[in-house]
Structure formats: structure tokens, C-alpha cells
Computed example of a mutant assay.
Amino acid sequence: MKILVPATSANLGPGFDCLGLSLGLFNSVVIEKSNLFSISIYGEGSENLSLKKNNIFVSIFNEVYQRLSGKKDAFRFIFENKIPLSRGLGSSSAVIVGAIGAAFEMAGFRVEKQKILNEALKYENHPDNIAPAVLGGFVVSVVENENVLSIKKPIDENLSAIIVVPNVFMNTEQSRTTLPMSLSLKECVFNLSHSSFLTACFLEKKYDLLAIASKDLIHQTRRMKNLPELFEVQKCALENKALMSTLSGSGSSFFNLVYKEDVKYLKQRLEQKFKDFKILVLEFDNKGFEIC
């Protein structure tokens, strides 16, 4: 079997731990029953020996597969990774969702997306990345009694994403340590109102209001201080036709939403100014993970 899992961009500014969307950039894993365990990695992480010795995908897959099937079988895993590691594009969520979905399939169980999503919550305790990785599109999620409740909206074909990928890693757990333990009422109301407004903008296709809706007071500025160039990335994007420009997850990548007709213009401006950063033009994914 083969499973494809998309990259994701989470938070989208004010929607901390609850908003996310799915990008047309995929990790794929081919899994075959074998007499001996083996693993091959191509693309992102292929030179990282620790990913072969301590592979989280394999660990989660084996754990779920053995629980479902009651068997300890050997498998060959072939990874083709296109999602950059530790850049805020959901590489960890892609691993979790892919491993669980593949384990259900290989164990002979029906792959129900809601079940996969709830199972994934056990490994990542907030749904902003795992929900769009499972469902695709723009997704709003809450957690209730250890279940993920999500509303999905397909993203229009006339929109594209331009992702600015710095050559600097940002660890999510370390990044969270920069966040405050308490917030003022003003900050909470600001983010609640902007997150709600941003959701309404996507649902009603009011994209020209997203630059206002995507403002945040909780996490972005604090995290961006770890890489000050990101302030210039955001400024450049918003001044050159980006509909919104937000830190992707905990960073270091930056997500920019743009009308397709403006992709070339914004891409050129970003490439001219940030020559050391990778600029990716991506479509959106409205399907979530797929088993081939």
C-alpha cells in the first residue's frame, strides 16, 4: 500500500491550536509485508541517520497495527519526504496521521477519517495540524471529550499559497516556551474576535478582509523574535498583494495566501529580497490523506 499525507499550515495568525489548512505538498510512504524489517528514506531527512534508527512513523505504525491485528509482522517502509522538517509545515502531523491511517489499512480495518483523527489526537494533543492533514481544506476544530469536532471548507481554486522557508529550524516544543503563561483580557478578546472573523472570511469567501482578520496578539510576535527577518517577510508580502501573511505553525516558515493572478508578482518580490530563503508556490489540498 501507499499513503499520501499533505503538509499543513496551522494557527493562521489568531487561531492558535484550532485553525489550519492543507497544502499541496505531500509525504508518501510505501509499506510492504516482508520477511525482515527495512527502511529507506528519500527526500527530506534522507541524510538524518536518527530517522532510520528511531523512526516515529514506524513506532506509531507498529503500535497501532499490533493493537488492531494482535500480530507482530515485519514490514518494509519506503519514505519519499517532501515536507520540510521542523519548519512549521506539519511534518510531525503528517507522520502521525500517515502512520495511523496506514496501520488501519494494513490491519484490514476500514479507514474512517474521523476515527483516524481521534486516534491522532492521542499523539498530538491539539488539532490545528492533524485535522487538515486528515480532512484537507480549511478546517476549524475543537476538542470535546477526547474527540475532535471539525468543520471543513474547501479552498477555492483561484487561490494559491506562497511559502517562505528559511534555512533555520524551529522546534515546536522550544517555541512554546517563549509563550506567556497568562494573557490579559484584552489579548484574549482580540484573538477570539479575529479568529472568529477569519473563519467567517473563509466561509463567506471574503478574502480581501483576511489581512485584518489574521492579526494575532498571542504567539506570532514572540516566536518571530527568534528570527527577526520574519518581520520583513510579513511586511514585504502584505505590501505586495498577499491577502494574508502568517507564521506557519510555530515557524520558521511563513504562509502567504494570494490570488493566482498575483502569484508571479509576489514570488518575484520575495525572491529578490530573501535570496537565502526557499520560496515555494503551492496549490491547496482539499482531500486530506489518501491511500493508494
Rank of each mutant, 00 (worst) to 15 (best):
M1K: 09
L4T: 09
A7Y: 10
A10Y: 05
G15T: 00
C18T: 15
L19A: 04
L25Y: 00
S28P: 08
V29I: 15
N35H: 13
N35G: 14
N35I: 09
S38P: 05
I39D: 10
G45W: 15
E47W: 09
N48Q: 12
K52I: 13
N54M: 09
I56V: 14
F57P: 12
V58E: 10
S59C: 00
N62H: 06
N62R: 03
Y65R: 06
R67H: 09
L68A: 05
G70F: 07
D73G: 02
D73E: 15
A74T: 15
A74I: 11
F75A: 01
F77K: 01
I78L: 05
F79V: 08
I83T: 03
L85E: 05
L85W: 07
L85F: 00
R87E: 01
R87P: 02
V95N: 06
I100G: 08
A102C: 09
F104S: 00
G108M: 04
F109H: 04
E112F: 03
K115S: 00
N118K: 14
E119K: 14
A120H: 11
E124V: 14
P127I: 04
I130C: 08
A131E: 07
A133V: 09
G136C: 07
G137E: 14
V139M: 11
S141E: 09
S141D: 12
V142N: 10
E144P: 02
E146V: 05
I151R: 00
K153L: 13
D156N: 10
D156M: 08
A161S: 15
V165P: 03
P166T: 01
E173G: 00
S175R: 06
P180C: 12
S182E: 06
S182P: 02
K186W: 08
L192T: 06
L192M: 07
S195M: 04
A200C: 12
F202R: 01
L203Q: 06
E204G: 15
Y207I: 12
S214W: 08
L217R: 05
H219E: 00
T221Q: 13
R223F: 15
R223C: 13
R223D: 04
M224W: 01
K225S: 12
N226T: 00
N226M: 11
L227Y: 15
L227I: 15
E232S: 08
C236K: 09
N240E: 10
A242T: 11
M244S: 01
L247H: 04
S252F: 10
S253A: 13
F254I: 15
N256Q: 12
D262A: 12
K264E: 15
Y265C: 00
L266K: 07
F274Y: 09
K275W: 01
I279T: 11
I279H: 07
I279M: 11
D285V: 10
G288W: 14
G288F: 01
G288D: 13
I291L: 14
